[in-house]
Design a protein around this nucleic acid. Sequence first.
RNA 1: CAGGGUGUAGCUCAGUCUGGUCAGAGCGCUUGCCUUGGGAGCAAGAAGUCGGGGGUUCAAAUCCCUCCACCCUGACCA
Length: 563
Amino acid sequence: MLASQVLAPTLRDDPANADVVSHRLLLRAGFIRQLGSGLFTWLPLGLRVVQNVEAIVREELNRTGAQEVLMPVVQPAEIWQESGRWDAMGPELLRIIDRHARDYCFSPTHEEVVTDVLRQTMESYRDLPLSVYQINTKFRDEIRPRFGLMRAREFIMKDGYSFHLDDESLDVTYRAMHDAYAAILDRIGLRYRSVQADSGMMGGSDSEEFHVLADSGEDLIAYSPNSGYGANVERAEALSNGERPAPKESLTRVETPNAKTIEGVSKLLGIPPTRCVKTLMVHGTDSLIALILRGDHQLNEIKAAHLDGVIAPLRFASDEEISKSLNVDPGSIGPVELGVPYIVDRSADVLSDFVCGANENGFHLTGVNWLRDTPQGRVEDLRNVEPGDQSPDGSGPLAFARGIEVGHIFKLGRKYTESMNVTVQMPDGDDLYPTMGCYGLGVSRLVAAVVEQCHDEKGILWPKAVAPAMLHIVTINQQRSTAVEQAASNLYIECQREGIEVLWDDREERPGVKFNDAELIGIPYRVTIGDRGLKQGTFEFQHERSESIDVRPDDVISRLVAS
RNA sequence: CAGGGUGUAGCUCAGUCUGGUCAGAGCGCUUGCCUUGGGAGCAAGAAGUCGGGGGUUCAAAUCCCUCCACCCUGACCA
């Protein structure tokens, strides 16, 4: 590539409206341009990175025995109605109407289509297991696209689907996908963790997410440094903190005027929040339900929404609803003689002599004890894990990190094969609904994640595996020195012969401009060719941001090949 | 969708409160000269329906109404 010809418009200033590192640097370095909210054009350098990532993904996926296919992105409503997701997906599904007034959507994911293909082609148990994947554009009408490529509406995704006769077979492919994802991220050279996850709208049982570690990540993950345990905090199991001590205090009603928060109550009574209990009111299937947590703990809304009797997604009761059904205002609620069912978090359950609302405005109770003063209630895991918590696998305290979710693998079960009536005939003549797995990997998000993890204050530092080129040739005064021009041209041709991708900055720019752009763009190796070095018969050779060394022109290729 | 912010030249922004030499700057771009190892200098130049529409006024980038777009905080997810 010649810099004078390639469309790589670098920007001197940081673009407005791009706070996130990857968004800012990809824009500045001329890799992408933005069309609208969550809509991006990949310019030549950016597209190369995308294609490099795709090549690695293909290799590792093919290695698992998965077969590449390509499915339509515009899909008729019928198959979505069949699976039930035409309604279930809600406004995230971008719906379109064709000239005959027929309903279509721009696909956010391809379970329906792949299932439809399978039912047309699959007849016998002999056809299974089958694993297919594609790399394709997805569209999700996100409530709020943000962070540039990290949460775009239109994005590139590798999505794979597998079909099996039984759970053991699904297990084999699921593990293979897990290993393939790990291999992909290893090859790119990223720091990442795979963690247990909530399966969200996909349904199904097991699911694991792959997170690229970065402070800008949207997700918080908890992991044990001493074992393989890791989980999204949405999902990480919170243990109770120890055993419940025996009651010592007697139940006392105290006046707490104007103390409506845990902080206010604990300050007023001189009791730490860890000895208080908070009572949150949510909608249940039959009535309001109280969720009871230790004062300093955070409710995990996803865990709560999964509980029987609780409406999903979680809906908090309004102040009016609370006052109406409990005859007490929020801020003075507690489990003692509450009048509606309550669910107690494990860590609240092991408290004794605690403080809670008295269900009377302006009053709290101290010295409250389960069983003695109020029924123990149903005990569940309701809270977020936090620093200091023990890993649920008993391997010691949890550590926390922020992550960018780039991949998610699911065991789906028979949800789609049953709803869309896909069967194969078994040896005994009976029909069987295959079980299914699905495996997503966000290719364009992965590119952003690479930048989030691989950059410094000057620009991007592409890992070799995905860099838009291996070598950046920077010529000094090329337009006035035929020696420089000739030396660069020779190296450029030699690289092409060796199959080394190279970007030659042949523009008529001053050296400072070229150096700054080179650092922004972040190609791993840089060779600077100027008359100064040429007098000694050397080029300057530089890896990433390291000090440059003088090398003989003949050595450049061998160094690159060796790297 | 709720809350907050922004919209003026290709890019980054000033000007808006207090209406009237306010159509501006820097960078970039074009031409010429000069310079050539870390975003040079000089000179000349091109470039904007001031997000759109409506209104108030003798007069609107500036005040009012309305719509739109983009960004940030929350629910969603690869």
